[in-house]
């Protein structure tokens, strides 16, 4: 089935597409038919920058298990680093005594 349900939101970082690295501005997530993965349905993630055109896109088609494992991996990686280390605002600075 086509679920048509789509979550979309801003994202900040870079991705590597067919034309090299570019700045990412938008993440779109939906469960629907994949283009390439050999399953009827997958969790599809498009990391894109619409201003740079349709090819400025990193596409992912993950199984439910793969998507959930990725979420856990991201959480684990962030938890192992000092809070804020990868934040757009930089790591939290110790307050001077």
């Amino acid at each position: 089935m086509c679920t048509y349900l789509t979550q979309s939101g801003p994202i900040d970082g870079s991705g590597k597409g067919p034309n090299g690295w570019f700045t990412l501005t938008q993440a779109t997530v939906y469960v629907d038919h994949p283009q390439h993965a050999p399953y009827e349905h997958t969790v599809n993630i498009d990391l894109a920058n619409p201003k740079l055109g349709p090819a400025a896109r990193v596409g992912l088609e993950l199984t439910e298990e793969g998507a959930l494992a990725l979420i856990e991996s991201i959480r684990a990686a962030l938890a192992s680093a000092p809070p804020g280390l990868a934040s757009a605002n930089g790591p939290a600075r110790p307050v001077a005594a």
């Binding site: 789509t6 779109t28 283009q35 894109a48 619409p50 055109g53 349709p54």
Partner: peptide, 18 residues
């Protein structure tokens, strides 16, 4: 209109997001 000349999968992603 959204994606002239784009690969079909990129065009579809663009149209879906729009």
């Amino acid at each position: 209109r959204e994606a002239p000349g784009a690969a079909p999968d990129d065009a579809a992603a663009t149209a879906r997001a729009a």
